[in-house]
Design a protein around this nucleic acid. Structure first.
Lengths: 210, 210
DNA sequence: CCTACCGATCGGTAGG
DNA sequence: CCTACCGATCGGTAGG
């Protein structure tokens, strides 16, 4: 793309490029309805653009989906992972990681809960680049929890008998369940259930092996 | 429908009526890909029928979806709830309910995990009869867990300080997470994580308030 | 970024 | 249970 094209690109009053407006709107919609039920036509209508005008930014539906995933990843990093990196390694990071994840659901950063929880459901059955990108992002939280649990054990902040994979499974399960509830009637009570479950699970992991 | 039409209906060699073949195939497919991505054309092709021949059994896509939900409900009742009703009320029923649910995932009764877990994700955003039917079935397990926990507390089999809603939330979360894993690479380890999580959660609820 | 299209597939109908 | 259709919408293209 030439610099002439770049410099002539119109800017929105909020300073966001059209491209960013599109992918962030797509991420919001996909967090509610799933990545696979996003259609170019309905997204264009939502943004009051022509289908082909929107399409021209991406070249294929798969590229639109991959760009949407990348936009969602950046928002997840800013809302959850950057605050975690400011905490000290070990148990403090583990607690911040869970607290930030629940806040990210409660805020809500995405209107349908965690983008990657919703997206995983829709792409699970269809092999391809979109599924791979969603799953590698979705699995990041769990792998990071395992690493952080091991760091906390090395610092004697968690009992050595705790199985890091088991603990991570259980923490992810209670937080993902809250993501599914976020658009439902039990939204507020389930956010409290998730926060209390995290607290109970971590308390148990501090005091004894599991 | 006249009895003449009924008696002339051909039977399959396995004794199942075409209607039952259709709705059970639809339930299997929907457990993997979601109720909303079921199309009449792809289901007909899978069953080697014409679209309109299949369609004639239902009259609308919504009726096909509702009939599929009902077929899945019957399979869930036979696999999980009937064994539970044979156990004694209270803690025994609570343990059987969790054990049967995990076996129902592991068997697997549906190739994509629990039909209602997968279906809930796809119908969450679209109000209507289909969403209502899926959610009321999906919520049944949780309500039943709450009732059974209360019965176990009344019999002094679980600590009275346990919050039944909190316990049910946590049990459903760890079992639903295994359902999402059932088509993935962590299938077997996550089934073990779910079973162990159930055991730890129930052990904790037996010995102390949460 | 637009209008005007393309073939394929969607849910559904007519008629048998 | 079938063939032959219908209008609407899908992802995508041509051309500007």
């Amino acid at each position: 793309m030439s610099s002439t094209v770049k410099s002539s690109r119109r800017r929105r009053s909020d300073g966001l490029r059209t491209y960013d407006v599109i992918v962030n709107a797509a991420a919001d919609l996909a967090s509610r309805e799933g990545l696979e039920s996003l259609t170019i036509g309905s997204l264009a209508a939502h943004l009051e653009m022509s289908k082909s005008g929107l399409f021209a930014h991406f070249g294929s539906k798969e590229e639109l989906q991959l760009a949407t995933i990348e936009a969602a990843r950046k928002r997840y990093v800013a809302a959850v992972l950057e605050p975690v990196m400011k905490a000290s390694p070990g148990l403090a990071q583990l607690e911040v990681l869970c607290a930030r994840t629940i806040d990210y659901l409660a805020k809500p950063e995405f209107p349908g809960g965690c983008f990657f929880v919703t997206a995983q459901a829709g792409v699970r059955a269809k092999a391809g680049n979109v599924r791979d990108a969603v799953l590698s992002n979705k699995n990041y939280l769990r792998r990071q929890l395992v690493r952080t649990v091991k760091a906390a054990q090395a610092r004697k902040e968690l009992a050595s008998g705790v199985d890091p994979e088991q603990l991570a499974y259980q923490l992810v399960a209670v937080m993902d369940a809250a993501s599914w509830s976020i658009t439902g009637e039990h939204r507020d009570t389930d956010l409290k259930h998730a926060a209390r479950a995290v607290r109970d699970i971590l308390r148990s992991a501090r005091s004894r092996g599991r």
